[in-house]
Design a protein around this nucleic acid. Structure first.
Lengths: 337, 337
DNA sequence: TCAATAAGAGAAAACGTTTTCTCAGCCGAA
DNA sequence: TTCGGCTGAGAAAACGTTTTCTCTTATTGA
């Protein structure tokens, strides 16, 4: 059995206007030849009966669905939502909609979703994850549609978009230095995370070879622990701490406060991620690095569009700059002078 | 100019098999009459050449796109993502995909997205927001497709799904009581939020007419402040606190600890929302109420499917039960005995 | 052996568009 | 008057499916 639409079609418009469907189509698309009079009459009739062209029919004809898929295994949406927001913003005025597919590290589920998207003729797929150094549990190479990796590992020769961790680290360091801090320490997550490593390397390159880096976990608890370790030990104590993420930074700030140290007067702290919910609720609120994921999403959207429309895009890894978000945990930049 | 597909179509299969497209269609769909031999041969050829039917063409024919739209103004994704996850889970094995549209309280943007979804012939729309007592900035009544409201205000006669705030409150209260607490206080967000009010009313109904309720903000800072107010004042001090959300609860727990009060030994605390990132990082980790948004999403998905397929669904407000998530902030339930 | 029935498979229409092709009418020029 | 060119508009094909209808061939029963 075949469904029947109750929506108004171009045939209804044609009937109402007393012309053929071809004339209606040409009138509405400002193509073909006809008197301005005819065109205007048809247009007004079309809006009068509330005609909106069926995108499915167009898609079938143009082999272009004006739809892209966003594949993610980031259940929390820590990265996905800002990204999604940027993608959507870049594409909405092109009339492109976004399928969001949450695959929970499940290869089977991933395949189902990818197949469904392909069946629905998406113009492209954006793959994203929660780690820059892991790929989704599904092979996206050799698909009949373009793929862009955003904040996820990608295959050889593909387009990969990511935040510039090293530049972000440098931003944090120069902020700390501009407030007069000289004894800097970096407290971050596991060494096994590429972004932790990248930031740590940038930290050591910039601060000096024996600059102290503490690898641990991405948790508040680790922030607490590392402060205990740093301040219970003998020797020089840091006056500026760059944290690998905002949760660690929160733990650090809380631990410092509990020890009677003032933030930012005694120790300045800079976080990473600008996760509002953490950064803004910390007292004092965190100065932190924002990866501009929304902008990353916007560029991912534009890129997939370029690829879908056959415009050339240079493959390879593209690092987008981070920016500094100033709150209170690092003082004002003239404070040190 | 009309696009040309490079994908393999049913015509290619027909050519490869030396039969007509109708026969191929019937073979693959297990309809029509033909020898089992023919059917099997066609099926194996189809998989051999990697044929996958174009969902657009089917949709056009059946007037059914196997696509639903999720409209949200919850930018943070505090509610949207669990909901999305549930919806997706409920629909994925029906072959239904989800368009996620983030509209930032912008009526124009909302209209654009809704129009785009209608043009793409979505089978239904699920509307969700960040408050149960606010509706999205777009009128979804009278659309040619079914609409389900999930965690959002809906129009008269529509299907509205929400969490049972009163039942959630009762869950928290009975937990506090079962650990032996008798002097209960409720600290929550602004009175202007329907869910704050609903929980507060349930609290007072259950605990007693002069049970203390403190309305404020949904922030940690408010949690701190209210503890200061409660414990600096004369008179009876609470030994059990039910908080309106996890952020308040975190503020409360931190403030109690700073005062030298032990949680849960001296004061037991129950939160609301089960927002992992807050609840799990609090020390002690929060016992809290989970609104089961994923389940809510699952039901929303199934409901929109029912409506899309013409099955009857009773309109009106449907409240789904919350559940208790036990961590450490409320002790164990036999502790009070 | 013949007719009635069933089986197997193809042709064509339909879904709602857009575009190319065709055609009728009209005007001006030779 | 006749022919070439232009203008306005419709017919038809195409996109990739599914389904109904029709037709040919084979099988069965008398």
């Amino acid at each position: 059995m075949v469904g029947r639409s109750s929506r108004v079609t171009i045939h209804d418009v044609a009937k109402a206007a007393g012309v053929s469907v071809s004339t209606v189509s040409k009138a509405l698309n400002d193509t073909g030849r006809m008197t301005a009079e005819t065109r205007d009459k048809i247009k007004s009739i079309a809006t009068g009966v509330g005609f909106r062209p069926n995108a499915l029919a167009r898609s079938l004809l143009f082999n272009r669905s004006f739809t892209v898929g966003l594949l993610t295994n980031d259940t929390y949406g820590r990265f996905t939502l800002p990204l999604m927001s940027g993608i959507s913003e870049a594409l909405v005025d092109q009339g492109v909609s976004v399928f969001l597919c949450a695959i929970e590290d499940d290869p089977k589920l991933a395949k189902i979703h990818v197949d469904a998207m392909l069946d629905k003729q998406v113009d492209g797929i954006i793959a994203t994850g929660k780690r820059i150094d892991r790929s989704l549990p599904v092979d996206l190479a050799g698909l009949p549609v373009p793929v862009v990796y955003a904040y996820s590992q990608g295959t050889e020769g593909s387009v990969i978009l990511t935040a510039d961790d090293a530049q972000g680290a440098q931003l944090a360091i120069s902020r700390l230095r501009s407030t007069g801090r000289r004894r800097l320490v970096h407290i971050t997550g596991p060494e096994s995370f590429a972004s932790a490593l990248e930031r740590a390397n940038a930290f050591q390159r910039t601060v000096g070879p024996d600059a102290k880096v503490l690898f641990g976990e991405w948790t508040e608890a680790w922030g607490h622990q590392s402060i205990a370790a740093l301040f219970d030990a003998e020797g020089e104590r840091p006056d500026g701490i760059f944290c690998g993420n905002d949760q660690i930074a929160r733990g650090v700030v809380d631990a410092l406060r509990e020890r009677g140290l003032r933030v930012p007067e005694d120790v300045a702290v800079v976080g990473f991620d600008n996760w509002e919910i953490v950064a803004a609720q910390t007292r004092p609120a965190l100065t932190t690095i924002d990866m501009n994921l929304k902008e990353l999403g916007r560029i991912a959207g534009l890129t997939i569009l370029d690829l879908a429309e056959g415009r050339p895009v240079a493959p390879g890894l593209r690092k987008l700059p981070c920016s500094l978000v100033v709150r209170q945990s690092c003082g004002s930049s003239d404070q040190g002078n």
